[in-house]
């Protein structure tokens, strides 16, 4: 037994509230690993991902949920994120082992913080900070986009009709939470 132990203190741990009928919370133990497809090795990488997850990478700007619950988000031609629930700080090893060297993996778990929003007023609140059109005809369930909200880079995912997952840099977590919280507070419930 080591003399010292380290306790995890995720920046938004425990954040949970309901404003304007929208539930806002920081999902616990959300792990995130980036998947970069080697130049010239794209086919092998895509095959490895399909073999590991039972799902191929979706097209750019879309996400797909694999059998094991991992959400694969395609950000660009050669970059995707794998999001999954995993508490221990070895997410990258877990993914790398499954992909067998066919993909360059980087642990992004601690780079980001996540906020989940759920409720019919969510879109109305996000109008205050999100420049992207979130209308269902344009940004349907499983769509994903990186954009900027209140000067913060944000990856936004639509996970359900009234459900969104927002990811932003962990160092500015408080500003991020503030931005989302204020947006909910500022909604006129009419």
């Amino acid at each position: 037994m080591a003399e010292y132990t380290l306790q995890a203190e995720p920046p938004l741990a425990g954040a949970e509230m309901e404003i304007a009928g929208v539930r806002l919370w920081a999902p616990a133990d959300l792990a995130l690993v980036s998947l970069a497809l080697p130049l010239g090795g794209e086919d092998a990488a895509l095959m490895a991902i399909r073999a590991a997850y039972g799902a191929g990478l979706p097209e750019i700007g879309r996400s797909v949920v694999a059998d094991d619950g991992t959400r694969l988000v395609r950000l660009s031609a050669d970059l995707a994120f794998a999001l999954f629930t995993h508490a221990t700080p070895d997410a990258e090893h877990v993914v790398a082992d499954r992909l067998n060297g066919a993909v360059y993996t980087t642990d992004q778990t601690d780079v980001w913080v996540a906020l989940a929003l759920s409720g019919p007023n969510t879109r109305r609140a996000l109008e205050r900070i999100c420049p992207i059109d979130l209308h269902r005809q344009v940004f349907a369930v499983d769509h994903a986009a990186r954009t900027v909200m209140e000067h913060l880079g944000v990856l936004i995912l639509r996970t359900g009709e009234d459900d969104y997952l927002l990811l932003s840099a962990s160092s500015s977590a408080k500003s991020f939470l503030h931005a989302v919280e204020v947006s909910l507070t500022n909604v006129n419930q009419t």
Binding site: I60, G61, S76, P131, A145, T147, V148
Partner: peptide
């Protein structure tokens, strides 16, 4: 070309 119209602020 891949993501559609985006505000120049991005």
């Amino acid at each position: 070309p891949l993501l559609g119209p985006r505000d120049a602020a991005e």
